[in-house]
Design a protein around this nucleic acid. Sequence first.
DNA 1: GACATTAAAATACCTCCGGTACGTTGTCAA
DNA 2: TTGACAACGTACCGGAGGTATTTTAATGTC
Lengths: 225, 225
Amino acid sequence: MLATVTFQRARTEEQREIRRRAILDEASAMLDEMPVAAVSLNELSRRVGLAKPNVLRYFESREAVLLELLDRFLGEWLAELAGELAAGVHDDRPMAERATAVAGILSRSLSRRVVLCDLFGAQGSVLEHNVSVEVVARYKRGSLARLTTMSGLVGRCLPELGENATLFCLQTMVMAGALSAYSTPPPSLRAAYEAEPDLAGFHMELGDSLRLALTATLLGVLPRD
Amino acid sequence: MLATVTFQRARTEEQREIRRRAILDEASAMLDEMPVAAVSLNELSRRVGLAKPNVLRYFESREAVLLELLDRFLGEWLAELAGELAAGVHDDRPMAERATAVAGILSRSLSRRVVLCDLFGAQGSVLEHNVSVEVVARYKRGSLARLTTMSGLVGRCLPELGENATLFCLQTMVMAGALSAYSTPPPSLRAAYEAEPDLAGFHMELGDSLRLALTATLLGVLPRD
DNA sequence: GACATTAAAATACCTCCGGTACGTTGTCAA
DNA sequence: TTGACAACGTACCGGAGGTATTTTAATGTC
């Protein structure tokens, strides 16, 4: 890492920002290889080429890194989603068709973002622990803003939702986090599970189960014709 | 603890069972006082009056204890639920009214069981790690059986659900786990959050948000009149 | 009732975690 | 050139989950 930047010590604000991003990027790379629980501060600092206390100069704890990463991934996902919803849902179609399209786009889009779902799932039980009130409050404020953004995106496709757009989006995030736990067996267990036919109920593909659940939720919050 | 039992060493199968239950009971008591993440093997073994390696004679890891506890709590909850649903939902009422009643009973019942929700939330990101394939598969089989039981209970109140009863019950568990993270601020943060008016969106009471979400889901999976 | 057997228990230890105290040294302004 | 300062690394801490080894309580046997 020191080879790619022209300084050994970050002294200006921009340089400090470069360090922060390097830490976040490296944590992101680790999440591509391992579950949230396995991302340790020791390994992260080793990979990023800094001593552990220096990583803690930029983030107050391991969880703070992951929380900020979740916020980043959520933003990236919403940006992608905006395009997909605009392209895939047509105003002139009947409500039921638009609802199906929205649920399909959301579930397909989420099932391509395993790491985001993993972080969603860890949010309550892991990420929001061991973090100062300030950081978790800042994250929650950001999260609320993302929720508003997402509600706007979905609401534009399904104006019939009205106020329920927010409820639906919250449920989508919730389901995304939980279903990654309920549906996709971790790679290490996949072989074992396939030998257990009575566990088939837990074998649904993430995308499928998510699409079913989101469709149901949407139909529930949409007005009856 | 040694005072309440008449043996210092568990030699028979029943005595071993007593030890197991004592460990589970103590872990349960700890969960009443602290979040899942704070229940450590050191403290648990200290409280139960055994050395740590002996706790590990009975359970293969900390997570195995919690996983078995989740299964127990789920069973207890379903037993309670059977009575509440039978008493609170009347066959002769119209479908919409029964749906509302079911959602209300489920959400009220769950919001009284904070620990169960907490464990639900930790399931994917915590409990199913660091556990052997055998244990997690056994848990999942049990969990699947509970799901079937619950689907039967709900299906008896809302026969219109048909196959969707299972989907709805799965969503209920998922929402229970996630909403405990999304809605109820942990006691340590409650004061801080109340000073942040823009965080009001995360302040919904567990019961309320759960009831709204479950009602919506139910309406989504029920047939249109 | 003394005694060997055996498995349940405790002791001592391991590695790794997140995190901190403190000494070291690049970096820049004077 | 040289302080001064803050970004860094080193060394350490307590506690986590877990294991290897020793001790000892309970039991059957003589």
